[in-house]
């Protein structure tokens, strides 16, 4: 019972949390995203899927307000991203974080409360309790004093997610939060994602493993610089769309489809 919003009709009934209009992002004169139009309903778990250099991270960063669009607009609950405060919690990809930074797990997680504080204000008891709860939620409470450079890959993902949980935002944007993580970490992260959806939060996750997408996510956007398709997993994960996104041969897609079906059968 992982997914709750399976039908297209159900998704259409929800309010739009994120609206992306004619979005183009260029880097060094090259378009990394081109003319993206996308509506993400409120309170869903959405995966962003695509091959390497397809613009997944760029899309997430632009929605989060980190990258500026070259053209087009992004609206969060009908407001432009720069007008927002405390509405978005961003979890960067593990590779984009300096893990040699001298900070322990607790201090990293407590950073999530800084956006609520004034420039020189010190976190209070409420913030510290919130950090401890987030650590417990991701199973890192026993190693809260450990330096972040000593964490395993899965623990690093969980620590970054715990920091975002402390932010208590309406929208969570996560860049590859499960890549190369151990099974225990993946299970904990999936539980956290489900819990966020249960709390009516909108969660956008770039995900590498299309086999597990139908199990974990309500909807998916398939990307390769342009938006190939977006909607329920059944509507988007088709052979035709895969061929457009990945340029794979029909035979290869057939094998993937067989593997997916077997995988689904095993999981049932």
């Amino acid at each position: 019972m992982l997914r709750t919003y399976s039908s297209k009709e159900h998704l259409e009934q929800l309010n739009v949390a994120v609206k992306v209009e004619n979005l183009t992002v260029e880097y060094n004169g090259r378009a990394t995203l081109f003319n993206i139009n996308l509506d993400i309903p409120s309170g869903v778990l959405m995966a962003v899927l695509g091959p390497n250099n397809s613009g997944k991270t760029t899309l997430l960063k632009t929605i989060a307000g980190i990258n500026k669009p070259s053209a087009g607009n992004v609206y969060i609950y009908s407001r432009p991203t720069h007008a927002l405060k405390n509405d978005i919690a961003y979890v960067p990809a593990r590779n984009f974080v300096n893990w040699d930074f001298p900070i322990n797990v607790y201090d990293l997680v407590l950073m999530g409360s800084y956006n609520r504080l004034k420039k020189v204000e010190i976190p209070g008891t409420k913030d510290r309790i919130s950090a401890r709860e987030a650590l417990e939620r991701v199973g890192l409470d026993t190693i809260s004093k450990k330096s972040i450079c000593d964490l395993s890959r899965g623990e690093k993902h969980r620590a970054l997610i715990a920091r975002a949980l402390v932010q208590d935002a309406r929208i969570y944007i996560m860049d590859e939060p499960m890549i190369a993580a151990d099974e225990e970490s993946i299970n904990i992260i999936i539980d956290v994602l489900q819990e966020l959806r249960h709390k009516k939060k909108t969660v956008i996750v770039s995900h590498y493993d299309f086999v597990t997408i139908p199990r974990y996510f309500d909807m998916v956007s398939l990307l390769n610089v342009r938006l190939i398709a977006s909607g329920t997993t059944e509507d988007v994960l088709t052979e035709e769309n895969f061929e457009k996104a990945y340029g794979m041969s029909a035979g290869m897609i057939k094998n993937i489809r067989l593997y997916m079906e077997e995988s689904h059968a095993r999981n049932k």
Binding site: A64, Y90, M111, N115, V120
Partner: peptide, 21 residues
């Protein structure tokens, strides 16, 4: 004085931006 915010900016500028620093 600005130690806490500087720490976030130097640790990860993307996190600092989405925290609206």
């Amino acid at each position: 004085l600005f130690f806490r915010r500087l720490r976030v900016v130097i640790f990860n500028v993307d996190i600092a931006k989405t925290s609206h620093f």
